[in-house]
Amino acid sequence: MYNPQLNAQGQLQHLLSIEGLPRRILTDILDTAENFVSVTEREVKKVPLLRGKTVCNIFFENSTRTRTTFEIAAKRLSADVLNLNVGTSSQSKGETILDTVNNLIAMHADMFVVRHQQSGAAHFIAQHVPPHISVINAGDGRHAHPTQGLLDVFTIRKYKPEMHNLRVAIVGDVLHSRVARSEIHALTTLGVPEIRVIAPRTLLPSGVEKLGVQVFHNMDEGLKDVDVIMMLRLQNERMSGALLPSTQEFFQTFGLTPERLASAKPDAIVMHPGPMNRGVEIDSAVADGKQSVILPQVTYGIAVRMAVMAILGGGNAA
């Protein structure tokens, strides 16, 4: 089957979505990321892999955090980094995506990190770049955010190495969440046997069960005996219409409080992709509590993004 992310040798050429990637590729990325975790503990926090290469962050939709972590990852690989916030740049003057990209190719960019509010934007760019250029999807609409999914499973593997034995709950605004989609695909591909989603009916996409998840509408039932809780951010900016009565009511029913956390296994870990809405989807006592691994997620995110860039950036020379 044709997969736009793989080259003729079956190696990763672009990272656009976790859906459709074989388990060996995911495992390769996670194993490679293990090697990058320790780079930040050294006197020189850089390795020379992407020396002389230019990584271009093209953000059609703003995201300071994601852009920053990609930027740090590229710099720790010794790449030069160009940041383009296209929302505030030529696109507002009427330039098309491909004209923007072609201009950057003419400036000899080697890798594109793309965020766009439209699903499929990174895929579209990947189809139009020459073969020596790689594209990484840093979030496209409601579709995918593959490096977030990868860093989440990397974090889970760090704390709960026996992934074939886990019960994982994803909680909150699944409807608008590209993160949730990428997480579900990553967990399924890596063999996690039980994935639950917990959300009000209005914040679940129709047919979500087809992704291989169990659906719950009640926190206490859904969290019972889980090993991992993955909270999602309530995406106010993507909300249109009356999906929720209010954020306060959402917190009453679906907020992760210490009392609700007690339904999970005693050693369960709590994750959140950030930025957090404290008092909306998560209580501060949980976010800052001892079961929270939210900040380690950020640290591991850099190692995982380094791994993706290192895998994409090598082996291109004839």
Partner: peptide, 14 residues
Amino acid sequence: YARRGMKTAAQPTH
């Protein structure tokens, strides 16, 4: 690396 790519294995430097 430029020719052969990243050799992947979870064997971090320590």
